[in-house]
């Protein structure tokens, strides 16, 4: 379940109402970022244009709320806009951008946990502590509307760290190594968060019964812990250095 390449979330014609900046589309991402840092007023907009659909998909699927995703993305883009001169080139520009977006989303998820407010299907939030609904529908209708809705609702019940790992790896298709870079954690921790998140989702989605009843289709897995917030120190995947470059984060 570690996709070989991130999925393309864009579709032709999406968001075409936004004017495209007039900079050379031949320039590589790092050249655009450098140009922006050196004062070119269009370079960052070209970067945004280039990556916006994938960034949007990550934010929306992490936060499950359009308005909040837009807010997080705006915060992240403005941070990146300001911090471009601190980009050292240790990772790809797109990785750097995604990391800033993921961090902005995680901040919001953690705040949401600390002060529970859950989005309603109409896009408004409530603070009554009710069950998460997963927020409003995405812009594009899913082929299997019910499945997508159920999956979103189940994901919303996971701890932010597990949700982020699963969204990046299983939903967006990022390789584990890249997800580790984005999250600033070791690859083994990404695998662990994904594994435990899947197990928990399996219960939430009904693939496993949360009890030990003999007739249960699943004999076990009743007690998958809510989260594994701390990195496993005993998991050695050879990527202890995954935090390298995290200082580029905003």
């Amino acid at each position: 379940m570690t996709g070989s390449a991130p999925r393309n979330d864009g579709s032709p014609g999406s968001a075409e109402s936004a004017p495209r900046p007039h900079v050379s589309s031949d320039l590589a991402d790092d050249e655009l970022l450098r140009a922006h840092a050196q004062g070119d007023p269009d370079a960052f907009a070209e970067l945004f244009h280039r990556h916006r659909d994938r960034l949007w998909a990550v934010a929306l699927r992490l936060l499950a709320d359009r308005e909040e995703a837009a807010d997080a993305l705006q915060d992240a883009l403005l941070s990146a806009h300001r911090a471009a001169d601190r980009f050292r080139g240790d990772s790809a520009v797109t990785t750097w951008l995604h990391r800033i977006v993921v961090n902005a989303c995680l901040d919001r998820l953690r705040r949401r946990q600390a002060h529970p407010t859950v989005p309603l299907p109409d896009g408004h939030a409530r603070s009554d502590g009710g069950a998460p609904t997963g927020g409003p529908e995405p812009a594009a209708p899913a082929p299997d509307h019910d499945t997508a809705l159920v999956v979103r609702q189940a994901l919303a019940q996971l701890p932010p760290e597990q949700r982020a790992a699963l969204v990046l790896v299983d939903v967006q298709g990022y390789p584990v190594a890249e997800a580790a870079q984005l999250l600033g954690i070791a690859e083994g921790t990404v695998k662990s968060r994904c594994a435990r998140g899947r197990a928990r989702l399996a219960v939430l989605l009904g693939y496993l019964r949360p009890d030990r009843s003999p007739q249960s289709r699943a004999v076990t897995v009743p007690s998958v812990t809510p989260g594994n917030l701390a990195a496993r120190t005993d998991v050695t995947s050879g990527s202890r250095a995954a935090r390298d470059g995290s200082e580029e984060e905003e």
Binding site: M1, G3, R7, N8, D9, G10, S11, S14, A15, E16, S17, A18, R52, D53, L55, W56, A57, L60, R61, R66, A70, L73, P138, A139, A140, A142, P143, D144, T147, A148, V151, R152, L166, D170, V171, Q172, G173, L201
Partner: peptide, 15 residues
């Protein structure tokens, strides 16, 4: 999860 991820999620024009 993969099926869900395979659904395009383009940024809406207003966003």
């Amino acid at each position: 999860l993969a099926d869900w991820g395979a659904t395009p999620e383009p940024m809406p024009s207003e966003v």
